[in-house]
Amino acid sequence: MTKSEMLRMYEQMLRIREFENQVFELYKQGLMPGLAHLYIGEEAVAVGACAALNENDYIVSTHRGHGHLIARGAETKPMMAEILGKKTGYCKGKGGSMHIVAYDKGILGANGIVGAGIPIATGAGYKSKLKGTKQVTLSFFGDAACNQGTFHESLNMAAVWKLPVVYIIENNLYGISVNINRVTAVEDLSVRAKGYGMPGVTIDGNNVLQVYETVRKAVTRARKDEGPTLIECKTYRWKGHHVGDPATEYRSRDEENEWKAKCPIKTFESYLLKNSIAEEDELEEIKNSIINEIQKAVQFAKESPYPEPEEAFEDLFA
């Protein structure tokens, strides 16, 4: 991996972090309708995974989707505008935080139903297989989605048909308030892969280089028509389930601090400096440009008009 590729990953993680920080601010200021599920703390998963893709590959995201979208190259201005319900948003204000689609980037949608994106991603894989396009689909979902029927059904079909799909579990330990250990008996969710006849692996989801390397291998395998892979990335959701959840009732501050000490961005920053891949002022410059970019995205979103009421009746049928 070249220096510029590594700096690009660093930049993307920062972009997600700053974007999410500003989404939280907008929520606290009462400028955001509804809610949003923040990706802070999990940046290495989306960034490492999407760095392993080609331009014409697909991703399918989740309700906690801002990170995947940014990592896949979605623009922050129309994303922020969508989150504020504006006409200039990716979905013209019809989707909101949970449903952003950026079809031109191969982003087949975030999804408000836990586990519902898994078969859709599998279908994109079916198309690639049928047409021989060599496109690979990344299917992102959380630990809780592994207990949905769609997980079982889709992984089974992908394995038996050798579909070019990489299934990425973001195990952030919680489905809303419930710790995964309280509802699932296995320690590593990747062991389930064996039951479907596909390789499964559990990795440190806060280590962007490890995520990249693991997903790259799985993507190469998928592209060679050797079938799907299940990758479990152990990570942590720093904020509550959504912006309005203080996460005080179901987990301890000690646990949160333990994970914050393993911040994926700080870890990667140390790696870059320690191995003399980048200088501090170089990284500082990237930080400043990101802060500036997200500020502009916020301003764009705030200044954009709301859709007209009659637009509610558009876009139902093609």
Binding site: Y58, V60, L108, A116, I118, P119, I120, A121, T122, G123, A124, G125, Y126, K127, S128, K129, L130, K131, G149, T150, E153, S154, N156, M157, V160
Partner: peptide
């Protein structure tokens, strides 16, 4: 591949249909 016998997984094979429709 154009006429596929699926497993008995109605929710997900409808979803696979959606993914196929989504991508052309």
């Amino acid at each position: 591949w154009r006429v596929k016998d699926t497993p008995i997984s109605e929710n997900s094979f409808v979803g696979i249909g959606i993914g196929c429709a989504f991508t052309g």
